[in-house]
């Protein structure tokens, strides 16, 4: 259940402001692709174009093509709601539904997609929580509100919620930036396991994290404040971190930036 993403000539706007310019890249299935780059260079914006969340922002507009295997997500007649069911997303700040129990949080996406028998729902919820490395911590309090968990647990709950619907692709926007090192490690391990099944894209400001978890790394940059962000290069993570082909990438990674 993993698909290749093929982006070509993608521009995204906030009203009149062009946030990313002419991005083309291929994201391999069953692998982790990391996006790195300075703040404001459009990593989140680009990520959000991959599941058509960008257009939810007032004024948000996208040009270009995003192929998921052989289907253009921006083709006419494509329902953004259906796209988001195929391409899951985990946000920077854990956002479980505060009024729902842990169980209902994980089941939320399933219930949107159709009706399941209770026993089947239970199985999927358990499987997803195990998949998100959270089962042991919450199995005795599935009916307690999800907002009562710690930040790291909440983030893993959000991952469980996202993988419960078996998406083709999982997008993660700085999923560990609000977490302590131990929860961060737990989630990085989890990403390593999840890539067996999903295509994973992760935005991170943490170079070590990108080096640890990703197979390929994309470096974004922007020429100046107010200018749109561009993709500088994308390559095997090892190569990006040892011997990038663009000088700006090396400067950014080694901290000699700006």
């Amino acid at each position: 259940m993993a698909k290749r993403i093929d982006v070509s000539g993608l521009n995204a706007y906030y009203g009149a402001h062009k946030a990313i310019d002419d991005i083309s890249m291929t994201i391999e299935p069953r692998s982790v692709t990391a996006f790195i780059g300075p703040s404001g260079c459009g990593k989140s914006t680009f990520l959000r174009t991959l599941n058509r969340m960008h257009e939810v922002t007032p004024g948000g507009r996208v040009e270009g093509k995003v192929m998921l295997d052989d289907e253009n997500l921006y083709g006419s007649g494509v329902d953004p709601v259906a796209v988001r069911r195929t391409v899951g997303m985990v946000f920077q700040r854990p956002n479980p539904f505060p009024t729902m129990s842990i169980f209902d949080n994980v089941a939320a996406g399933l219930r949107l997609n159709g009706s399941y028998k209770k026993s089947r729902l239970k199985d999927i919820v358990e499987k997803s929580l195990i998949g998100a490395n959270l089962w042991n911590e919450v199995k005795d309090r599935l009916n307690k509100p999800g907002s009562g968990l710690s930040g790291g647990q909440q983030q893993r709950l959000c991952i469980a919620r996202a993988i419960a619907v078996e998406p083709q692709v999982l997008l993660m926007d700085e999923p560990c930036s609000a977490l302590d090192p131990i929860s961060t490690l737990a989630i990085e391990d989890l990403i390593g396991e999840l890539k067996e099944r999903f295509t994973i894209v992760i935005v991170t400001h943490n170079m070590q994290q990108a080096a640890r978890v990703s197979d390929r790394t994309a470096f974004f940059n922007l020429a100046a404040v107010g200018k749109p962000g561009k993709l500088i290069e994308i390559d095997e993570t090892e190569r990006i971190f040892s011997n990038p082909s663009v000088q700006a990438t090396e400067d950014y990674i080694s901290g000699r930036f700006g």
């Binding site: 939810v56 988001r84 195929t86 996406g109 959000c158």
Partner: peptide
Amino acid sequence: HEEAALALGATRWEVIRMSVLP
């Protein structure tokens, strides 16, 4: 909260039911 529902593939009404009304 609204984006949490949207990202799961909720329609506008489902966003209202899952996030806004609660």
